[in-house]
Amino acid sequence: MDIKMKIENLNFFYGELQALKDINIEIESKKITALIGPSGCGKSTFITSLNRMSDLIEGTKVEGKITLDGEDIHNSEVDVIELRKQVGMLFQKPNPFPKSIYDNVIYGPKRYGGKRKVELDEVVEKSLRGAALWDEVKDKLHQSALMLSGGQQQRLCIARCLAAQPEVLLMDEPTSALDPLSTLKIEELFDELKKNYTIIIVTHSMQQAARISDNTAFFLNGELIEFGKTTSLYMKPVNSLTEEYITGRFG
């Protein structure tokens, strides 16, 4: 088993409030890890700590160790800008920039510098193909991204992440604001994406977690209750809380 990220004894505080308690998880490389649990259980907090977007919130404190390819991401030698290139993030609501489709995709690469126009064109096509959006938008690359449907916008945001050539993709309920058809398209895309990327996805839908993920982690009140292969977690959960949650008795 190839481990991409390893989280050891992670505690996370918003001021006095402890949002995560002693989390230990190993994220398998090029697999999809789903995080499930009721609202407020800490799963979103967990993934924002993986690319240190949580640094942006004032008054937070992190304890424990998170490693990416064996390197501690809180190590002072790790540049947070570089980390976020390696660990891309997709948000709950599609958040394309109010720019053209083309400019959205090259937003990152243009700012990392050192790319010529021809190379940027290649990045755009490759990233949009990677997000299964190319065929739909190839004739209107210079139109505003806000003209796209919600599902297309979310795939554009995926393309925007891919353009940064990340290794890990964090997704915070990426389909919760989308209709079922758009959701299906994005779920189909996951199979393709996991060939090249390690994916960690927070989802509200247990069915979605069951459909797409290889491993599932169940969070409750800031604690990791159970973590294991998705099939076994769903078929024969070890913890009675997990069983109650996945059978819909609470949550």
Binding site: L56, N95, K99, Y107, G108
Partner: peptide, 27 residues
């Protein structure tokens, strides 16, 4: 300027200043 745009920009690994010139000021 919606915060989701700032976050979207920062999450791509661009600097704060690039986020200001790239997203905040145009908006």
């Amino acid at each position: 300027v919606p915060n989701t745009l700032r976050q979207g920009s920062l999450a791509l690994g661009v600097t704060k200043w690039q986020t200001i010139t790239g997203v905040v000021l145009p908006y």
